[in-house]
């Protein structure tokens, strides 16, 4: 007969936190910044097809760092949740707060109940009718949520990026200015300039019609950073 192992819950949780954090710190980073017309996302991503930032619903976008398959599962969950709610009720009833809540529940449950926690950090962002009503919810692997303003940095270099952004970020920047601040921060922290074809850039643009999310092409990135 084998004796069951005893691990104190404190130790077990500590190990899980450590495991998740280490997983996340190995990945590349994503930045989100509010600018005059909405929210801008900048990420270092060598792939043009495997995205870190994507559309969830009309005004809501999603960004994830860490393990791709895990934040991809979360992204799809968000789209399903949003589309079912929007179809059952109305498009206006899909909110970033509701989605952030749902993500927080899911991640919290996975963190406590499953042996291996998700190694992800995600951001649920929504563009409001004016800059004061933008929403940025930063959700960690254990389900904790932070309601952020101005800018958010996630991923391996989050802390260093946060420091650079704190210095350079200003309220009400144009899209080009915000993009410059973002790509400069990534280059500065990474130690070398990130070429335009390694940048993934997307915006939630208040001026667009119903679907506010738009990917920014490589050509446009080059034009904007001139």
């Amino acid at each position: 007969m084998s004796l069951p192992y005893y691990i104190s819950p404190e130790q077990f949780m500590k190990d899980k936190h450590k495991y998740a954090r280490e997983g996340i710190s190995r990945g590349k980073s994503v930045l989100a910044m509010e600018f005059s017309d909405g929210v801008l996302f900048v990420a270092e991503n060598p792939s043009a097809t495997l995205h870190k930032v994507s559309e969830i619903y009309d005004k809501v976008a999603f960004a994830g760092v860490g393990k791709f398959n895990e934040f991809e599962t979360l992204r799809m969950h968000g789209i399903r949740q949003a589309d079912v709610r929007g179809y059952s009720y109305s498009r206006e009833d899909v909110t970033a707060r509701g989605l952030a809540n749902s993500y927080s529940q899911v991640l919290g449950l996975i963190f406590t109940e499953q042996l291996k926690p998700y190694e992800v950090e995600i951001l649920v962002a929504a563009v409001g009718d004016d800059p004061e009503t933008n929403e940025l919810y930063h959700i960690l692997y254990d389900g904790s949520v932070a309601d952020e303003h101005g800018y958010v940095a996630m991923g391996g270099e989050a802390e260093a990026l946060g420091e650079v952004l704190q210095k350079n970020y200003k309220d009400g920047m144009t899209m080009a200015a915000a993009l410059k601040v973002g790509s400069k921060a990534l280059s500065e922290v990474g130690g070398e300039a990130v070429p335009a074809d390694n940048l993934e850039v997307a915006v939630l643009d208040r001026k667009r019609e119903r679907r506010k999310f738009r990917r920014v092409s490589e050509k446009e990135i080059a034009e904007l950073s001139r």
Binding site: H77, Q81, S88, Y89, S102, L109
Partner: peptide, 8 residues
């Protein structure tokens, strides 16, 4: 409740 259960 319109929540979609989370499917891995």
């Amino acid at each position: 409740d319109s929540n979609v259960p989370f499917d891995q």
